[in-house]
Amino acid sequence: MNLMSGGAIDSAGRVLVLEPGRAEQHYWRDIWAYRQLFLILAWRDLAVRYKQTVIGVAWALIRPVLTMVVFTVVFGKIAKLPSEGGAPYALMVFAGMLPWTFFSTALSEASHSLIGNSNLIGKVYFPRLIVPTAAVVVAFVDFLVSFAILLALMFWYHFLPPWQIMLLPLFILLAFLASLGPGLWITALNVKYRDFRYVIPFLVQFGLYISPVGFSSRIVPAQWQLLYSLNPLVGIIDGFRWCSLGGGSAPYWPSVYLSIAVTGVFVWFGLSTFRKMEKSFADLI
């Protein structure tokens, strides 16, 4: 009977009961069963991204490089802010921009993802969690491209990556979760209240200035450090810099712990809101 496996909507022979308010018994198993849809949605967004553009994937290179140049000139040369450790200012900016760009694109893509796929949601069943998560994966591919640029820059400046670079995946995971948490929350709310569509671009623009992207978090006065660290991006960006630029720029550890805690709260909150609202998406979208 079970001719097909994996992405099966339902494993063969299973009895499914649909009732109002009934919690999905096999929610996580369903998500696992739909992993192929998850991959293919991510692949679709990637494949479509640079279709009918002249320079194609080069856009993924040009944008971060130009932003880095502007930040280096404005903050490093004109405002003459200090770099971290012995690293060149451009390198420090770029190491901060990596997690920030990842976070901001992931957050905005995830927030729009459900509405962007409304035709699917109204017409076919699948665990809805797949959609925003696939959107975050797309942002991650851009991140990988930028990461290659960082390595090229290090080579250019003859800068040897420190041993901490082995810890980088941990901070990537943290950035991933930090964008997924609010992303889930906002995309679910967006289905019901379209106001949130206008909140995200504003939030992202605003966040760039209150996160230590173009400058080092050390220029924030010590008595404000802890308060500043309530922004989970502070811990993440500092961690990134520490991992890629070396021991001279060790992060303010409490801010890393705080950022883990804040991220955890957001993920839990986003996930529970999302699951609560998930069943009504098709009616409201």
Binding site: P20, V124, Y125
Partner: peptide, 26 residues
């Protein structure tokens, strides 16, 4: 097809369901 949930009552389904509610979904 599990796209939306009922407001009352219930459905019991046995086996794998596929639905084609629109030509060209996806």
């Amino acid at each position: 097809s599990r796209i939306t949930e009922p407001s009352a009552g219930r459905v019991i389904l046995k086996g794998r369901i596929a639905s084609l509610l629109e030509i060209g979904t996806g």
